[in-house]
């Protein structure tokens, strides 16, 4: 009996090694991110989101089971309390949390597409095109996006969520471009690409069918890293009081909480819940990235 079970466990271990995609870090990271998306979807179905826009409730109400400085107890009408102007915290985060993730994914997706296009152009065409792309990406990679975007948004006033994502995308194409360019340059010399070229395959075919699949692990890592950078930049803008003004975002909620002195007044739920959600989001992204690293680099799997 025991021998049989030991064999089973051994077999399972073996299978886990055979398929690197069954990776605990990847699993938990993706789980955390999906949970945040689920919060948005389920929240929209079961909670009245108008509460995020109307300040009808008592101000600074604590979550259920706690008491605020005025001795008010939390009530189930507002399970995780209200903010300084009586808006429901649950409604705020149901709208805000998926939006942060959305900005990050959209900006990173656009940046990645630009990066693939520019990286392949630079690596393949070479010459003057390569020089220009290389120099511009070298230059742009040292400019912190937050500071240019501060100028953009303070000059342009209110922006929509999509507009913010587009603006951030203008600063996250450099690292994929550099990465792909370097890989393309080394792959161009490899046997299978030479083979494909000799057999008369079109440039498009070589780029997208022969080379791109080999880049996937790098691209995933770079994509996730850019999602993190984009969300950090978006939250940074929001905490400085910029970013979308008409829809609630996690960063803006933190901004309002700090300005109202929520830290001294011990209104921890007001700034703490958005902070916690953002923290979980970043941890989820990190785990996914570490998991992908282990998938593509077996040497790291030891730990």
């Amino acid at each position: 009996m025991t021998g049989h079970r030991a064999g089973e466990i051994k077999g399972w271990r073996l299978r886990r090694f055979e398929s690197p995609w069954v990776n605990p870090k990847l699993f938990w990271g993706a789980g955390l991110l999906l949970a945040i998306v689920a919060l948005g979807i389920i929240g929209r179905a079961f909670w009245n989101l108008d509460l995020a826009f109307t300040g009808a409730a008592p101000l600074k109400l604590p979550p259920v089971g706690f008491e605020n400085l005025r001795g008010q107890e939390g009530a189930w009408i507002h399970p995780i309390g209200t903010d300084g102007s009586g808006r429901d915290m649950l409604a705020l985060i149901v709208i805000g949390a998926p939006n942060s993730l959305f900005v990050g994914l959209l900006a990173s997706l656009i940046g990645m597409s630009l990066g693939i296009f520019l990286g392949f152009s630079a690596g393949f065409i070479g010459g003057r095109t390569d020089d220009v792309i290389r120099v511009v990406s070298d230059v742009m990679i040292t400019i912190p996006p937050l500071l240019i975007l501060v100028v953009v948004q303070s000059a342009w006033g209110d922006v929509s969520l999509t507009m913010m994502a587009l603006l951030i995308a203008g600063f996250v194409w450099q690292s994929p471009t550099r990465l792909i360019r370097a890989q393309v340059l080394s792959m161009k010399q490899s046997g299978y690409v030479q083979m494909a070229r000799l057999s008369g395959a079109s440039t498009m075919h070589i780029m997208f069918r022969e080379m791109l699949p080999n880049l996937v692990p790098y691209l995933f890592g770079s994509f996730i890293a850019n999602v993190t950078t984009s969300i950090v930049t978006a939250v940074g803008l929001e905490v400085l009081g910029l970013g979308p003004q008409r829809i609630p975002t996690l960063g803006r909620t933190i901004y309002e909480a700090i300005n109202a002195g929520a830290l001294i007044q011990n209104l921890w739920w007001w700034w703490g819940i958005p902070t916690l959600l953002l923290g979980l989001m970043f941890i989820g992204l990190l785990l996914v990235n570490l998991g992908l690293d282990e998938v593509s680099n077996p040497r790291l799997r030891k730990l």
Binding site: T228, V232, V235, G236, V239, I254, I258, L263, W268, W271, G272, T275, L278, G279, F282, I283, L285, L286, L287
Partner: peptide, 19 residues
């Protein structure tokens, strides 16, 4: 795991607890 968090979030947390 906690080091993926931007300093503004850790700052808020430290500020609340230690200050």
């Amino acid at each position: 795991v906690f080091t993926s968090i931007p300093p503004i979030l850790s700052g808020l947390l430290l500020m609340w607890i230690l200050a």
